[in-house]
Write a protein that binds this DNA or RNA. Structure first.
Lengths: 325, 325
DNA sequence: TGCCACAATGAAACCGCATTCATTCCTTTC
DNA sequence: GAAAGGAATGAATGCGGTTTCATTGTGGCA
């Protein structure tokens, strides 16, 4: 493998000049620059990343920590991070914590030894641990806000409000809410939106696991309450609710309305397609990765806290309430 | 940040000894080893990865290239790679190629400059490009076999055979096959299994995109053939078929049987739950990562070609054929 | 014409660790 | 008891770039 020295020699310049010709072209006369570039090309020169990293103190590696790669929600964020990383010639190191909050801290620290900055998607890690991690190196939070740390979040309260307004317009008056994990930032903010609409009663079904199985269990509770619509923490839960209701012979939307949250790909695949709140996951990933770019953030600026807009998508799982005949 | 020299000095030994105490403990007397470890602990020493990489020639980084992270199939493989990587204290660099085979080649090469080896999941990259990549550095293929390159594949022909035997046992005689991409290794091997069962007629519906939309389109074709069961290239396609059939008022399994392939999480979430072929995706990821570990493969050995077993999972989308009354 | 500022260049000093090689000291073995 | 072998150690070197600093050469301006 050709080294920078080889290139320099082949071009008849010093290694310093060769280095500059490649990384700061403007600082080299055009004649030599051309000779260096030509030599590099001819020798098939590939800079050694480790050496670059050691000398410059930067890898161009971004870390991404998330609870579960197989969850489409996080996978979509990952795609966004990746898209942005590629454009800024970074690579992405991803670490899945297997939904185990106790492991997250170690995983983040381990990753921080290998990257320039990390995007952390950790709904449940204790705040003080996050602060500790943030002290060790650049870190951006996704879907969670902590004072003093840059973050990208969604306006979930608005999503909930839109949902309730939609249901009220369809004449629903009593709805059930299937909550997510109690400790989740995201669930707390969803609940804020739940309080904001008059003329509709929300029955809280309590916290549930934010997965299909969680919804499966919640469906029976919802049915018992007499609510005419179930609003769910996320689409996975909503899908679970739908499955369970259908297997109990309850038709959707005629027997019960169901609303999800997040607009994951699966929400369109089911019958009936799910009314849900579209959350710009991929964009969030991109924004988070951008916030990590040191060249964009003057070191003394306040940490950016982006809050992205969400949008209710109306599909087939909601419909006007028809009074019992 | 404390360096190895600092630790050595604090422990009263040479840097060489400190280095050995940390990376090859057995080669240092227990007294000094203890002193080094204690000093490292006390100073909060974290080895500089870039320096380690430069000096040793290895990063402990694995690359993973796949068409689409948001596809649960690939996401599950990614989890497996990651699991194994973590156990061997490696980190995983993942690169999503956005289903664009033309980009894959560049992505792999770019990644190869940053990692010790790559796991490549690329159903469609031309064989010669893969060979070229393999020449540049350690590489393991997943779900694809090429002479001379280590790989992990699934016995998909057996899966198809199991499927047909199952359907035949349920009295089906005519089934339709919704194929995957023509160029895919995986589809070719599925077709081999299709030929292996006597007494059942397979109608080939031709190649389709291996996503939900592909199945959606294929459903109508299947209905037209008069087949009593549809066997699909994968679960995503099967889900698409189910959606379309249901929206056309065809009940499953009473009006049509549907079988998927891969056993992705979503296959259990739908109603009816999908009969499908379980493929050990996560295990494949792990095995692939293991094959990349240089300490496990004597350099002169023939490249390992693992073929993992698959298993038909019978759920609700298949049922005995009841003759029309 | 002379002086100064500035651009282009190369020598050399790192960056932080792994590893080779020579040295020392201790244990075996005959 | 002497020679041989082996384990533990430290000095020094190199991995392959980046960056500082000193040097040289150039043009602008008085």
């Amino acid at each position: 493998m050709a080294t920078l020295r080889d290139v320099a020699q082949a071009a008849g310049v010093s290694p310093a000049t060769a280095s500059r010709a490649l990384s700061a072209p403007d600082s080299v006369s055009s004649g030599r620059r051309f000779k260096v570039l030509e030599a590099a090309q001819r020798l098939g020169y590939q800079p050694n990343r480790s050496a670059q990293a050691l000398a410059s103190g930067r890898n161009r590696h971004l870390g991404l920590v998330l609870p579960d790669l197989a969850n489409p929600y996080f996978a979509t964020i990952a795609k966004g991070v990746q898209l942005e990383a590629r454009e800024s010639s970074n690579a992405v190191l991803v670490a899945d914590t297997d939904e185990d909050p106790r492991r997250e801290h170690d995983v983040v620290r381990e990753l921080q030894t290998r990257v320039d900055g990390v995007v952390l998607c950790s709904p449940r890690m204790p705040e003080e641990q996050i602060l500790e991690c943030a002290a060790r190196g650049p870190l951006v939070l996704v879907n969670r806000e902590i004072e003093g740390i840059p973050s990208v979040t969604f306006d979930v309260a608005s999503g909930m409000r839109q949902t309730l307004l939609h249901l009220r317009a369809l004449d629903h008056r009593t709805i059930a809410y299937v909550g997510g994990p109690e400790t989740s930032w995201s669930d707390r903010h969803r609940r804020r939106g739940l309080d904001s609409v008059a003329g509709i009663t929300v029955i809280d079904l309590g916290p549930h696991r934010p997965v299909h199985a969680g919804g499966f269990a919640a469906a029976d509770l919802a049915l018992e309450t007499g609510a005419t619509a179930v609003v769910c923490f996320n689409d996975l839960v909503a899908l679970g609710v739908v499955s369970r209701l259908q297997s109990r012979g309850v038709a959707i939307p005629s027997g019960m309305n169901v609303v999800g949250f997040d607009n994951i790909p699966g929400s369109t695949y089911v019958t009936p397609a799910l009314t849900t709140v579209a959350v710009p996951l991929q964009r969030a990933g991109r924004e988070a990765a951008m916030l990590l770019d040191p060249s964009l953030s003057p070191a003394d600026a306040a940490p950016a806290q982006l809050r992205l807009d969400v949008e209710l998508i109306i599909r087939e799982s909601t419909a006007p309430l028809t009074p019992a005949p």
